[in-house]
Simulated scan of single mutants.
Amino acid sequence: MAASLGTHVVLRGTHETRIRATFCAEKNRIIELVSSSQSTRPFKEQSLLASKSSLGWMRGRAQMSSSRKALCRVLSSTLHRALNFYIFKEEIKKCYELINRVGRGVVYLGSSRMGPSHSHYVQAQDLAKEIENLLDCTTWSGGPGLMDAVTEGAMLAGKPVGGFKIGREAGEWTASNFHPYLSSENYLTCRFFPARKHGLVDAVVRNNSFDKTAVVALPCGIDTLDEVFEILALIQLEWIGSKLHVPFLLMNYDSFIQSCLNF
């Protein structure tokens, strides 16, 4: 009796033929399974690799994005520092140019919050007028308050006046170079405190015996006290007045800074 097993025909009556037919059928089945697995496995592997690749690309993109953000922050910070350094350098240069143009003289440091109605305002005005009549030199001030009083006193004496003002003064930000008493040629608004300090220090350094300079500290607050102590430190270290003496006057009106002196 003949029977069909796929593509093979065997005789049931023959044991050897049946074994051979079974072997051939199993062999073909194994070949089909292997072929099927070989044809589908690369697809699965490719899908898996594609998934891993997509996930890795997304992670890489996220990492690249965070890296770019970090790089942008670093570049932004670097450019910001470079820009500030450039502005600071230009301000110092302008301070030196202003001093060379107007001349060295007496630097006044005082409160920016004491207006014309304050008793110290009139005292500072009279003091500046007397010093200018005595020394006949340039007066250096800047800012409102007692600095305006000093400026008025020097102008009443008919003497030249120069000014260094910080952009942020008494809690107010002033973007202009406007001053009610000084011309724009004799006045400079600084953005950075160190630039103003450099200008104030250079204005009192005596290059020769003909330069008449001094530092006058009027009643003031914390910010101005910082400048006062810094100049005192430079005098103590002989960075100022090492060869040519520079007088330092501390005006203790109404015992305003007596506690500081006692300390």
Rank of each mutant, 00 (worst) to 15 (best):
N208L: 01
E90S: 09
Q123S: 07
V106K: 03
D136Y: 02
P219E: 03
V246R: 02
V106L: 12
F43W: 08
L232W: 05
I240D: 05
L55Q: 14
S259V: 08
A82L: 15
L71E: 14
F192H: 04
A2E: 13
E97S: 11
K27N: 06
L250C: 00
L134Q: 15
F23P: 02
T17D: 14
K94S: 05
E26Q: 06
G171M: 10
W57H: 13
T174N: 14
H80Y: 13
K69N: 11
G145E: 02
T17G: 12
K212R: 09
L156M: 07
L5Y: 08
V205A: 06
V9P: 07
V10T: 06
G142H: 01
T174F: 07
L83D: 11
T7M: 11
T7D: 15
K27W: 04
S117R: 13
H245W: 08
G162K: 00
S112H: 10
R12N: 11
S54C: 02
F178P: 00
L237T: 12
S67Q: 13
L75H: 11
E16W: 08
E230W: 03
P194L: 06
V74N: 02
R68P: 01
S111C: 03
A217H: 00
N207S: 02
S47A: 14
P194G: 03
L261Y: 00
S176P: 01
F192R: 00
G103S: 03
E230N: 04
Y108I: 02
E97G: 03
F23H: 13
D226A: 12
S111G: 04
S184Y: 02
P247E: 01
V74F: 02
G110W: 09
I131Q: 09
R168T: 15
S183Y: 03
L249A: 00
W239M: 13
D136G: 05
G103P: 04
I131V: 13
C137P: 07
S259L: 12
D223L: 04
M114V: 03
N100K: 04
H198M: 10
G105Y: 03
P42K: 09
Y187V: 00
V107D: 00
Q63I: 08
L49T: 11
Q236C: 05
R206M: 07
W173F: 15
R29A: 07
I166K: 05
H118A: 11
S117L: 08
L134E: 15
R101E: 05
G13A: 09
Q258N: 13
G199H: 01
N186A: 05
F256M: 03
A50Q: 14
P144K: 07
R18H: 10
